[in-house]
Simulated assay, not measured.
Amino acid sequence: MSQLEKLTELIGKGVSWCTLFIVLMTLAVVVLRYLFNTGATALQESALYLHGAVFTLAAGYTLKHDGHVRVDIFYRHFSSRNRHWVDFLGTLFLLFPVSLFIAYSCFDYVLASWKYAETSVEAGGLAYVYLQKSLLLLLVVSLLLQGAVELTKHGLALLHRDGPSLYKSEDDSNSGAEQ
């Protein structure tokens, strides 16, 4: 496993713990509101920020584990080599351009937020909105790093016809569907 894959794995597993904290914070907000008739804006925003962090920071981890949504009407019937081609070309011509477009589109947005040290508009809200917005750029970084790993893996698989496949054999993948 490459160092980039280890980093992606570490970030993904670390971020997964945020979901527990989101549940606990949401529970605390509900208890405070309905049992003690007290608002907790900072706590509520913290849960919201963590929710954003889970989705943005775990994108590379999800890509590594092939967990993104895929319309596989044809893909699941492709040979291993054709799957490598689809994944290689999809990474090169879809993932990279879309990630770079996201970076280009949000860079000024994030920069402006940092320039003004943007804070919450809510009374009692968090003072670090600019950190939350910076997650957009970290999303791009995580996707590009893991995308480079995926591009390399699929490229090597295409170059070495006799090498091990990254995919289950067609018999393994179809046997579960037919049972």
Rank of each mutant, 00 (worst) to 15 (best):
L139F: 15
K115N: 15
L24S: 10
L32Q: 11
S99I: 02
D66M: 08
Y109G: 12
H65W: 04
L4K: 08
L131S: 11
G60Y: 00
Y104V: 08
Y109Q: 07
L27K: 10
A40H: 13
V54D: 02
E170Q: 11
G52C: 11
K13R: 09
A148Q: 00
F96R: 00
A112Y: 04
E5Y: 01
F74G: 08
A42V: 07
R161F: 09
A123N: 04
H51T: 15
S80W: 01
L92I: 07
V29Y: 07
G60P: 00
C18A: 14
E45W: 06
V140E: 00
V29F: 15
A28Y: 10
A177L: 12
L126A: 02
A112T: 07
V71A: 13
A117H: 14
T56C: 12
Y109W: 15
N37Q: 15
Y34H: 12
T26N: 13
W114M: 13
L144I: 08
L151P: 05
R33L: 11
T8H: 02
A28K: 11
L100M: 10
S99L: 00
L143I: 10
K6S: 13
H77R: 13
K133P: 12
A117N: 13
W85A: 05
G176A: 10
S79A: 04
I11F: 01
S99C: 07
L89G: 10
M25F: 15
H65A: 08
G52L: 06
L32A: 14
Y167P: 01
D172M: 06
E150C: 10
L137V: 09
A123S: 09
G14C: 03
G67M: 02
L139V: 02
V149N: 05
S2L: 06
L166N: 03
T38F: 11
S169F: 00
K115H: 10
R81H: 05
A112N: 15
L136D: 01
S80H: 00
K6R: 13
H51L: 09
